[in-house]
Simulated assay, not measured.
Amino acid sequence: MSVSGTGPRCRSGRYATASSAALLLALVVGAVAWFWAGRVAGQLAGLTGALARVAERDLATTVPARQRAVETSREAASRLNANAATLTALVSRFRL
């Protein structure tokens, strides 16, 4: 006679439950990572496009400030906009 909860069946059930929980946790963490990676990549792609336009001498380029953007991309967008304005002022000063 075995005590309830200590037999081989109970142990295999616990392993199955633990492995299912671990798999579910891994899927949730993977989904969150995928979401954040896509969000950051999209913001960086916007910044890269704006930098490419500035490199092509389109100094009127600005990057719109996003309220929900990652802090790093907000800072980069702010600096890009400030630098583009500075370049515009310098170019207009030296034009004849």
Rank of each mutant, 00 (worst) to 15 (best):
V29G: 00
E56Q: 15
Y15T: 15
A21D: 07
A65P: 08
N81T: 15
A22F: 07
F35G: 05
V29A: 09
A41L: 01
A33W: 11
L59E: 04
V32W: 04
A85S: 12
G7I: 11
R53L: 05
T6P: 00
S78Q: 13
T17C: 02
L51Q: 14
R93C: 00
A55D: 12
A76Q: 09
P64N: 02
A69D: 12
M1L: 08
R66P: 01
N83G: 00
L51A: 10
E56C: 03
R66V: 11
A60I: 07
Q67Y: 10
S4E: 10
R79T: 11
L80F: 03
A85Y: 02
G46D: 09
L96V: 12
L80P: 08
C10M: 04
A37M: 01
V70G: 02
R95V: 10
S78M: 07
P64C: 03
G38D: 06
L44D: 09
L27D: 05
R57M: 03
S12Y: 06
G42A: 05
A41V: 01
A22I: 09
S92A: 13
L51H: 04
Q43G: 06
F94Y: 15
G38S: 09
R66M: 03
R79K: 11
T62I: 10
R79E: 05
R39K: 14
C10D: 12
S12T: 15
E71K: 04
V29R: 05
A82W: 05
A50Y: 01
